[in-house]
């Protein structure tokens, strides 16, 4: 028995080591860094200070956090609206069509995301494909200014993160025992009631994983905001990147990152509590 236990430990040891080295280590370093004093020009000293956190409370930074949350919420909401039905219906398709759709969803991942975003620029710019089409069809008199706006960023986020929602809803709906839905219908539930009382609660883990998988990145995907938002809208992600590079204030960037991490964790915990889901699709 004892030997067996040791063997088990031995097999998971590399995993522990890996996590320690690449997840826990950097995280602790980041937290430590957030209490360090900035000296400018990429330099800092380990003299502890709360200065970095106090600085976040300045209205301009609070504003950034607020804006980021608003954007992440809007994007996540839209991703749910589009991704849930997509994943749900995909699970109901026959095997042949499932495979084809899956391929279509995975295909964009083979192209670098920056290149894909530049594709959107070609479509949406003032003299771009979409405006051209609408003008030619006579729907528009003057070209619309679509790029470098809030909706453009939301669109970029939805586009980039939708597959995660689709796949996690799909894997949840795929596992759903459809005879449960039939049982609900048999017991007197209309199709809508059966969906609300059986299908939705049982696919909630998938939806929740999808929400987490799209909410967290949409707080931090700075390059989408930069490219499609034209730097007009500053998000926490962009701010952190900016402080790391141009601002050359690592401790402040670290403090921003810590606050972001804490806030998202709290939000997810709250969300999990509200939806009362114990296990997440793909999360343990």
């Amino acid at each position: 028995m004892k030997k067996r236990k040791n063997q088990g430990l031995l097999t998971v040891l590399p995993l522990y080591f890996f996590t320690l080295l690449f997840v826990v280590g950097p995280l602790l370093y980041m937290i430590a860094l957030s209490f360090a004093t900035n000296k400018g020009g990429y330099g800092f000293s380990w003299r502890p200070t709360l200065e970095n956190y106090i600085r976040i409370l300045e209205p301009v930074y609070l504003q950034t956090f607020l804006q980021s949350f608003r954007l992440a919420l809007t994007s996540t909401f839209l991703i749910c609206l589009l991704g849930y039905p997509f994943g749900y219906f995909m699970a109901k398709l026959s095997g042949k069509w499932k495979g084809r759709l899956m391929l279509l969803i995975m295909l964009p991942f083979w192209v670098n995301s920056l290149i894909r975003l530049y594709g959107w620029i070609i479509i949406f710019q003032t003299k771009g494909a979409l405006n051209n089409l609408l003008l030619q069809l006579g729907i528009l008199k003057e070209p619309l200014k679509l790029l470098y706006s809030y909706p453009a960023i939301v669109l970029g986020m939805v586009y980039a993160l939708l597959p995660f929602m689709i796949l996690s809803v799909y894997s949840s709906a795929e596992k759903l025992d459809w005879s449960l839905v039939e049982a609900a219908r048999d017991l007197g539930a209309s199709p809508f009631r059966a969906f609300c009382t059986v299908t939705l609660p049982l696919t909630l883990p998938g939806l929740l994983s999808g929400v987490i998988l799209s909410f967290i990145p949409s707080m931090g995907l700075f390059f989408i905001a930069d490219i499609l938002g034209g730097n007009k809208i500053v998000l926490v992600g962009s701010l952190i990147q900016d402080q790391m590079t141009r601002g050359s204030n690592w401790p402040f960037a670290a403090a921003l990152a810590v606050v972001l991490a804490v806030l998202t964790t709290l939000l997810i915990a709250l969300y999990r509590k509200l939806t009362n889901v114990k296990e997440l699709e793909g999360f343990y």
Partner: peptide, 17 residues
Amino acid sequence: PPHQRDVNTVFQNYALF
């Protein structure tokens, strides 16, 4: 539709929620 019939089923795999 099934929900409007006065007929109920015991499913083979029980189908308990």
